[in-house]
Write a protein that binds this DNA or RNA. Structure first.
Length: 259
DNA sequence: ATGTCACTTTAGAAGTGA
């Protein structure tokens, strides 16, 4: 089973390039972030025509997540537990039924800038709620995957110019510590389980010729529960997508699981 | 830091979020 995550930065803006990537990469499941669309306006037919089931959790103007799946989905839930006052559409869960079921958590973590400030407080609170959700799922001792745009640069080696990010919400010590606490629960960073060393990025800013200078950061991640990590056979970043026509500022990351 | 992009309100440019 091939499961991808892709922050598309607007479904309307990616109406040509997203289907083109789907046809080429042929994932079974895709976790989408920043669809920037309400559910009613999401162009589901484009994906249903390709054999995908479509589950959205949209919002007007910004945020919004979705799951596309060629395999059956069960028990879809929307929103990250832990704060009923949180109106931002950043989280969706579903169980995909392959040769064995895997619980999928698609997430778009708050950016958090400027830090310090209320936006950073919201980011840290959101990370705390995500940690709690992971802890609850771990108790079930079943395979699950948390994938998406975490807006966290885990280590200096995950940025071309780490010094430029030292005061940024994506790299502040509290952000990194919260991400590490997820790993300390026993979750596996799928990309780092397969590939070590610097120079691997999932985001290049539109500004400053970042792509041409390879001024990137690794902020899109796939965290696997222990039972899911046992099924991991590959994890790759489709970085070439950033150099294509009308690209998102993020590129897809995907895993293959023996499931 | 910035050689940008996508969205909204609202009908042209400005604000916002990233």
């Amino acid at each position: 089973m091939k499961i991808a995550s892709f922050n598309i930065n607007g479904i309307k803006a990616r109406i040509e390039t997203l289907p083109a990537w789907l046809d080429e990469a042929d994932p079974d499941v895709v976790l989408l972030q920043e669809i920037k669309s309400v559910d009613e306006n999401f162009p589901r037919e484009i994906f249903e025509d390709r054999g995908f089931t479509v589950e959205t959790h949209g919002q007007k103007g910004f945020n919004g997540v979705a799951i596309l799946s060629k395999l059956p989905l069960e028990d879809v839930t929307r929103g990250l537990p832990g704060n009923n006052d949180d109106t931002q559409a950043r989280y969706i869960e579903a169980t995909v039924i392959g040769t064995r079921p895997v619980r999928l958590c698609g997430l778009y973590l708050p950016n958090g800038n400027p830090a310090p400030g209320p936006k950073y407080d919201y980011k840290l609170a959101w990370l705390h709620r995500l940690h709690a959700r992971a802890n609850d799922l771990l108790a079930l001792e079943e395979p699950f995957l948390m994938g998406g745009d975490f807006n966290v640069i885990p280590q200096d080696e995950d940025a071309k110019y780490p010094g430029a990010w030292s005061d940024d919400a994506l790299a502040l010590p509290q952000s990194r510590a919260a991400f590490r606490r997820m790993l300390h629960l026993g979750l596996t960073d799928a990309f780092r389980a397969r590939t070590q060393g610097p120079g691997h990025y999932t985001f290049w800013d539109y500004q400053g010729g970042a792509w041409n200078r390879n001024n990137g950061i690794r902020i899109d991640h796939m965290l696997l529960s222990p039972h899911c990590a046992d099924l991991l056979t590959d994890c790759q970043i489709d970085s070439a997508v950033r150099g294509g026509d009308k690209p998102s500022d993020h590129v897809p990351i995907w895993v293959t699981l023996d499931a």
